[in-house]
Structures are given as C-alpha cells and as structure tokens.
Design a protein around this nucleic acid. Sequence first.
DNA 1: ACTTGCACTAGAATTTTATTCTAGAATATT
DNA 2: AATATTCTAGAATAAAATTCTAGTGCAAGT
Lengths: 195, 195
Amino acid sequence: MNEKTDRKQDILQAAIACFNEAGIEATSIDAIRARCGASVGSIYHHFGNKEGIVAHLFINGLDQYWQQLLAALAAAEGAETAVKAMVATYIDWVVHNPELARFIFQARTLVNRGEQGQRLQQNNKANYSQVLAYFRPWLEKGELRQLPLELYAALIVGPAQEYCRAWLSGRAKTPPPQLADDLADAAWRAVGNPR
Amino acid sequence: MNEKTDRKQDILQAAIACFNEAGIEATSIDAIRARCGASVGSIYHHFGNKEGIVAHLFINGLDQYWQQLLAALAAAEGAETAVKAMVATYIDWVVHNPELARFIFQARTLVNRGEQGQRLQQNNKANYSQVLAYFRPWLEKGELRQLPLELYAALIVGPAQEYCRAWLSGRAKTPPPQLADDLADAAWRAVGNPR
DNA sequence: ACTTGCACTAGAATTTTATTCTAGAATATT
DNA sequence: AATATTCTAGAATAAAATTCTAGTGCAAGT
C-alpha cells in the first residue's frame, strides 16, 4: 500500500509543478515523464490521458477545500461567525495550498467539460446543498438578508476568490491574510441582516 | 481594405465558436480551418500560432469591455452612481457578449503567460489606473470607505464576476440582469462610506 | 501597360505531442 | 508454487501543430 501510491503521487506532483510553470496546455506528457522518472506507459496506466491527470488533481484538491469549509461551518455558532469563517477558510486554504489553488483556477473549465465533469458537478451540488442546510435556519430567523439563493455564494466568497486569483497571478502583492478581516467584514455587510 | 479583414474576421469567428463548443485545448487548427474555409497557411500568416488567435480575441475583447467601463465611469456623477455603474456595466457586457465572456474566463491564464502576456498586463495596468483616477477624489472626500487599494476591484465586481461565471457555465439559472440591482447594492455596501 | 514588391492563400512536408500497443517485471491471491 | 492482476517500460502509431514552398492577386512606381 506504499509503493503503489508512490509512483502515482510522483506523477501527480510532477504534473502540478509542470502545469503551474508552463500552463496545462503547454505541458507535454513527456515533460511530466522527464520530471518524475516514470514511463509514458505508467502514466497512461494510472490516468488514461492528460485530462485524467488534470481531473484527478482538480477533484481531489477541491474536495480537500470543501472538507475544510464544511468543518468550519459545523464549528460556527451563528450566521455572522459562519459567513466570516467561510471567507477565512477560503483564504486559509489558498495560502496553504498556493500551487493547488493556482492550478484549480486554470483547470476549472477544462474539467467541467471533460469526462469527469459530471462527477465534479455532482460533488459540487452535494457540497453546496450541505452549505445551504447550515444557512436555512439563519435565513428563517432573519439573521441573513433575504436575497436570491443563487447569489449568496458569489456575495460571500466572490471578492476573496477574485483577490486571491489576482494575488496568485502576481497582479496583487498584499498577502491575502492581511486582508482577511476586511474581506470577512465585507462579506457580512453583503449578506448579514442589519435588523 | 474589405477582403483583407474579412478572412481574418472569419478565422476569429470560427475560432471563438470552436473554443466555446469544445474548449481551447480541444480545438485543433484543422477544426477552425474546416469551419471557416481558410487554409492553415492563411491562419498562421495572420496569427502566428494557436495562441496568437487566443490572444487576439482575448485582448480585443477585454479592451471593448474596458472602453464601456471607462465610458460609464466618465458619465457617473458620484461615488455611489459610479460603483453601481461598474457592476451594471459588467453585467451588461457579459449578457451582450456571452460567447466572448465565456471565452475570456477560459483564456485568462493562457494569455497571461504567453507572448502577449506582457502587453495584456500593460493594458490592464493602464486601464486600472484610469479607474483609480476617478476614485481618488471620492476617497478623499470620504464618500468611499478607506480600504487597502488592492481590494476595491475585488469588492466591487468580484461577486458579479463570480455569478456571471456560474451563469455562463450553466451552474446558475437566473439571468444576471435580474440580479443586477442586488449586486450593485451589495457593491455599494462593500465600499461605500456610511458616514 | 509593365514590373516589382508585398500581403495573402493554399496545401504539402515536417516536427512535435498524445495515445496505443506489446512485452515483460512486480505484486498479490489462491 | 502457480496463476492472475497490476504496474512499468519503451517502441510504434496516430493526431496535431507548425513550417515551408510555391504560388495568386493587388497596388505603387515607372
């Protein structure tokens, strides 16, 4: 159970490094092979094709984030804490997994179409409805502003996401944690009910 | 001056259609060729390589958006009008150019790296500093909340961007214009100074 | 009108990259 | 140990990107 995952992990690590250095499209299978010492055969055995590697990294990476997010929500005690925790968790995850985050921003569209797109969408839907379950009571108690349901995600994490994307690409310099409080406050102003 | 641009435009139109149907990576030069009736030679003459096509579509498309945005800002009379106009303009542009918008979301990373990345970044910087010029007086007059400069863009258009992305990919159903007011209000709550 | 130069087009030839295939090594299962 | 299964290697093939060669047509200068 050790050597098995090793080669597979080696390939994944080499792949994400290449993807971030050169971009997904510009990374050749051979570049990945050269970097991790595997053979083409081995790579194709484990992942089927290039898109398979991308999808694997993407889906597992995102899942890791959802786990953190749901854990944070489970620990939150009120609407305000929860909303602010969502922003904080997002930033925390990006800062602790910058390579993965950068990669995920790149790969979204690609994976959505590909063979695993279905699976990804199901995952998202399931996770999203769990988040909604946490929010419903707060909505009913009037702790949250009444807004179209489809809007909450964008209002709460949209700005953090947008800023992190800029930071990861070098456009913005200030490390996200320094802005975390401002972003969390803004999120709460966006969806919190002032009563 | 007519046939010249025609062929070039044909190629661009065919390309963006292919890119949106199959994704940039999955689109072959031959697919573009087949769709517009040009020859490979002609395509390479005009754009150098596949990335050249992508960059051209991206940079011109984005420029069109910046023009609209700057025009809207020029017409705005106060901070609140301006901030809300930024959101409205963004949504308006996406809804009127859905193909282009979808494409731009896909291509961002790719173009940023490529040969034209430099140029893109310069354009962005120049446009961004124009926007900042509009904002500075409002900041000084205290109409806007004092926040780290790097944050305003994300706070104002981040949620709209995030929602439009979801809408374009089919994840969200409500047409953005129906949510425009909510998004504009949220943007103003995020950056407006309550005095 | 002629010819010279240049932008453009076509499609074949080449190069690069992705993917498939065949055979053998390692590992697990009985 | 015998057999099946998973994994690895690298050569062979297929598909795609890019380059190259040879034109065509148009415009400026004569």
